[in-house]
Amino acid sequence: MKILAFAEQRGGKFKKVAFEVVHAAKKLAEEFGGESVALVIGKDIHDIAPQVGGYGIHKAIVAEDNRLEFYSTTAYSKIVAEVARSLSADVVIISASAMGKDLAPRVAAKLNAGMASDCIDIRRDGESLVATRPVYAGKALIDLVIKSPIGVFTLRPNVFSPGIPDATIASVDKLAVNLTNSDFSSKVTSVSVTKAGRPDLTEAEIIVSGGRGLGGPDNFKMIESCADVLGAAVGASRAVVDAGWRPHEDQVGQTGKTVSPSLYVAVAISGAIQHLAGMSSSKYIVAINKDKDAPIFQVADYGIVGDAFEIVPELTEQMKKVLGKE
């Protein structure tokens, strides 16, 4: 089995998801007694490419071109598909990041390949490769197999371990990039940061979320203070977003982000089924709510039934002590 791992970089730096994908590809190749190769696409990236060696893939292919500085769905997918073909890859693995979710379906369509999106597990079962992925925003899980000669898999960020890197340096093969202007019929021209200083919900190790019980947008300051002490992302329930208290990109749940942090703190969120679907795969859940019957307590590891306005500031202070941030 030959596996191609797309190692995502932005701005000349690997994303954490790149190493998650590389390590998962390496492990799968071992299970099947196959080979894995990493692909890095961008501008000025040949210096970083050898890093994939530390995460288990010892050969990196680099597609480098000034025009590839920013993502282009058309150009990137062309390169991934061409490399997959030239390697006779059986499996292409890509992160289910914003870039990967856009890239993978194009690659699958180019290769006429079956695709499994947002997988939380990929494993050998006999001679088959079985992927597990959530559907209905996590209300159910499916196991699926791909029947086409080549399969495309995207991996949910924050779920697969990148492993512990060692000092191995990967060898680098430079690909002759052969792109014309028509390959950039869709291209990113600039990237802007909307939330400087706070991690993104889908990448965060810790999320502090607020719900309608907070009463109004100003009371999110308390949530933000707590989040900042923890280096956490700030989330919100759908009710809060629909009321215009928080931007839509903060929404956690079935019509928002599905998240899997190590710790999810739900403040004044009752736990509607569509919210629970989006966050119940978090490793640890804390619920703070004054309604003891709120459904959120059914999924919480630790709960405090009480007034958020009293408890959250105290939590922030206590966290500062533990984390030495006083």
């Binding site: 499916i142 196991d143 630790y302 709960g303 408890i311």
Partner: peptide, 25 residues
């Protein structure tokens, strides 16, 4: 090209511990 071989509910989370009802928790 894809075949679902099984669907199941995710493992149910066990309700955890209620630690208290005010900031003393």
């Amino acid at each position: 090209f894809t075949e679902v071989v099984a669907m199941r509910k995710p493992p149910a989370k066990q309700p955890g511990r209620i630690l208290g009802s005010d900031k003393s928790a």
